[in-house]
Write a protein that binds this DNA or RNA. Structure first.
Lengths: 138, 138
DNA sequence: CCTTGAAGCTCTAGTTACTAGAGACATTAC
DNA sequence: GTAATGTCTCTAGTAACTAGAGCTTCAAGG
């Protein structure tokens, strides 16, 4: 049995976040001590690690809830899980593409300014005011 | 003079968002018609385009507010602007790195599952439950 | 001049995934 | 037995919007 603090240290999930997961139904309410404090089982710890790991991989709370539902029905096909993961993967790839375009643009803007002039003629401010100065779409 | 709707079409910023920018002080309150409707000048339109463009480049509202302050004091050095842009740039680069690590991981997880089994033995669910199955840090 | 339909107004509340703080109670160590 | 630390609930705040209710104003056609 873990206190909430021990669980927090173990899983590296902050205490208020653990309570938040319970409030939103992602984590089952644990047993309580006589003094009404939460006491977690090893199973709870496993579940929380799962959540943490999935969050680190960028899954939304909703997606994680779906994955947990799948775990709870062990005889179901894991096609749904594959689906969630591939969706997440294409999401990540899109984000990377977009950020790389931004990187190019920002790099160009930063390069063009030597920091010597006054803001009146600053290329950065001009670039931001006038999209047509951009070389790429974003 | 533009109505809020015309300004919205021109800049591709949604009407509630324009009002939100005004509420938060990013956009100066415009003149009003006799019936209390907003009427925007060409200058407002320019300012809003600036904001839109900067938001598209991923700048936070706070950073944009700083940039606008710079614009309003045209004799100041543009060093501060350079600073804001390079900060934003390194931010973007960090995000790209992190997402690329996630991409690798997700790809590996997705590959390992053929969608044929039941969720009881699903590699995806196992991967998510057990961080030690990961090949990389994230 | 009058009507009608689109556009605009304010205000409140909801979104996501937490985080922070107040004030009270529980547990543990010495 | 007391002090220090941990935990409890509850409310409110964060970023950057978005949605909806219920009302008023505007512009065009008859």
């Amino acid at each position: 049995m873990f206190t909430i603090g021990a669980l927090s240290k173990l899983t590296k999930v902050k205490i208020p976040t653990i309570r938040y997961y319970e409030d939103t139904g992602l984590l089952d309410p644990p047993e309580r001590s006589e003094g009404n404090q939460r006491r977690y089982s090893a199973l709870s710890a496993e579940r929380l690690s799962f959540i943490k790991h999935a969050r680190d991989l960028g899954f939304s709370i909703k997606a994680i809830a779906s994955l947990i539902d799948l775990q709870k029905q062990p005889d179901q096909s894991c096609l749904d899980a594959t689906d969630i993961v591939t969706t997440q993967l294409s999401d990540v790839r899109q984000k990377i593409k977009k950020l790389q375009a931004l990187e190019k643009e920002l790099d160009r803007i930063a390069e063009a300014c030597d920091g010597q002039g006054t803001s009146q003629h600053c290329y950065i401010l001009a670039s931001l005011a006038d999209h047509s100065l951009c070389r790429h779409e974003h």
